[in-house]
Amino acid sequence: MPQPENTALFEAQRPRLLRLAYRMLGSVAEAEDVVQDAWLRWSEASDIESPPAWLTRVVTRLCLDRMKSARARRETYFGTWLPEPLLEPEAIADDVTLTLMLALERLSPLERAAFLLHDVFEVSLGDVAATLGRDAAAVRQLAVRARRHVQESKSRYMVEDAEAERIAQAFFAATRDGDTAALQAMLAEDVVIHADGGGRVLAFRNPIRGIARVLRLYASLFRKFGDAATLLRTQRIDGLPGFVSLDRGDVLQTTALAIEDGCITAIYIVRNPDKLGHVIQALPVN
């Protein structure tokens, strides 16, 4: 096929391929690398009957190859590991939130691929089987096992955009100002904080659980640093209400908030600079 048509076909699939690769790997940078590798293979291929199916197969297999080394790295990761924050100007069609991404981490690579392809990206069971090199019955079992593991992690409380922004701004203001009364009104009793610094910057190595400990933590931070944090923008992060900020000491971080029944049940903070390069690029230039 002519090169311009070849390029146009690929570019039409690029957003979907990036979403798939990110959902598989939990890394924006690695997802971009995988899609670039897929482009190189696509540019050398010919006589492809179904470009979307072919590209989906290539990206999935490239991700499966990378997941072997990625899992080994995570076993030695310092502190809590969280996916690279995906900034979303609006909710994306696949509706996979950060909480579900973390549930996917408990699956085997094949289970994760089967679940994402069949349940999220709506690939037919036969095509999933061809992609994974398994028969349809085996793939069906992979998808069933994966679905059983992750079904409890799907959010039952969908937050509209205006409400998401209100919650994010109110939470930031309360933590910046040390307003424990306002915080207490927002938090669930069993709220938990997960913070990912990767050993590069200061972060809580272990999760902080329970409203009393979380309130004490934010009160302590306010006493030590005052209201030095700066809100850069509110932003959906992996489908959750959240924001990008400069923390005390001017450390860039993203904060995502899981909501259930109107209360914040989990707070996900990413401070590892290795995971925030794409976030810096997305910020407006002053």
Rank of each mutant, 00 (worst) to 15 (best):
V123A: 04
A130G: 12
I208A: 09
D261M: 07
R200I: 00
S155C: 02
L215K: 09
R200T: 09
A162W: 04
R140Q: 15
L257W: 07
R134L: 13
T180H: 03
T97I: 03
A174P: 09
G262E: 04
V139H: 07
T60D: 10
T131M: 00
D135I: 05
R156T: 14
G199T: 09
G126L: 12
R156M: 09
E105K: 05
A130S: 14
M186A: 05
A195R: 08
D250R: 12
P15H: 05
P241C: 02
R73P: 13
D274Q: 11
L102T: 08
R41C: 11
R16M: 08
A45G: 11
Y268L: 07
W39F: 14
V139L: 08
G133Q: 10
R205D: 14
S46Q: 15
F121A: 00
L240Y: 10
W81H: 11
R213H: 13
F78T: 04
E75G: 13
Q36L: 12
S245M: 15
V150F: 06
E75M: 14
V150C: 05
G239Q: 01
L116Y: 06
D179C: 05
E122T: 11
V35G: 09
A256F: 03
V251L: 12
D261T: 03
A143L: 05
A31S: 10
A258C: 08
G197P: 06
V139K: 05
D238W: 03
R145W: 01
A212Q: 13
V150N: 02
A164K: 02
I264L: 10
P109M: 07
L18V: 09
A181F: 05
L142T: 05
D250F: 13
R156I: 00
A146S: 00
F78S: 01
T254H: 04
A129V: 12
R200W: 02
E105V: 09
G198A: 09
Y268V: 03
P85C: 03
E88V: 02
P52Y: 04
R236D: 02
V244W: 03
L240T: 01
D190S: 12
L82Q: 02
I193R: 08
R148C: 07
R74M: 10
Q169I: 08
R112V: 02
P207A: 13
T230V: 14
Q169F: 06
T56N: 10
A282Y: 01
N286I: 12
